[in-house]
Amino acid sequence: MAETPASTLAIEPTATTRALPARVSWWGTLASDPGSRVALGFLALLGLAALFAPWLTTYGPAQVLDPVGLQSLPPSASHWFGTDPVSRDVFSRMLHGARVSLRIAVLAAALSATVGLAWGTIAALSRPLIDQVMMRTVDALLSIPRLLLVLTIIALWPQVTPTALAVVLGGTGWFGISRLARTEALAIRQREFTAAATALGVSTPVLLLRHILPHAVGPVLVASTIAVGQVVVMEAGLYFLGVVPDVPASWGSIIQDGRNAPLTWWWLTLFPGVFLVAVSLSVNTIAGRLRSAINPRQLHGR
């Protein structure tokens, strides 16, 4: 057998270099990286704050306090993030807005991951013709700018609730993921254990669920994690543009409230803006760390 210098190092080094990673310890991977620890901590804190927003805030998200006396006040001890032009407390609106933003983001990312994984792996296992049709469809959809696609659907959608928005964003976010899933599935299909399973008489659905999906899930999860950050920004943008009916509070709508005088009412732009960047950055840090841990051959993030 071929001997390499590496093969004399550890007990079974070839197993770790040539086989698929047996199990990636997600938690261990993140805990060992300071950047990921900070990112994870921030997201956990934000998630908890959003979850317990009604108990953590003094005012309701849309509560008008005093349209005359408390209008457009800069940050102070009583209103940490200031107030907006209609005298609503920005801190309360931020936390309640996080509930909307994060829910949409997680839902949309989960939807993208599921549809993308299913579409890609099924295409990979299908006959060449079906595979071609499925992947050319994805190519066509990828060629349309996502924002254009989203705006078109929203224009045609009768009532855009946050859940509906999550569906729209998730439904337009899986194209790249399906390509990745297909690539992964094809690579695993090349592994002889899938041929062995087929030779044993394992049916195609079982082959998919038992032998292929578990190996494709890792890279797809990482790609979807990146999508979380994108969705948060995009959803804020949609609320900012005002193309979707406003909810009681969202980060995008807070920024929109300050758009007439961004320099004067700087707190209306700064706080949501900073949080958007922080969420996006944290998610990307974690995703990047996980990606390098499982080292998939390619990632499509769009």
């Binding site: 070839t14 086989a19 698929l20 047996a22 002889e192 254990f193 041929a195 062995a196 578990p214």
Partner: peptide, 12 residues
């Protein structure tokens, strides 16, 4: 039975 003992078994 396959040649490559590293790719012929599902590592999970």
């Amino acid at each position: 039975i396959f040649q490559d003992p590293f790719s012929s078994l599902n590592p999970r």
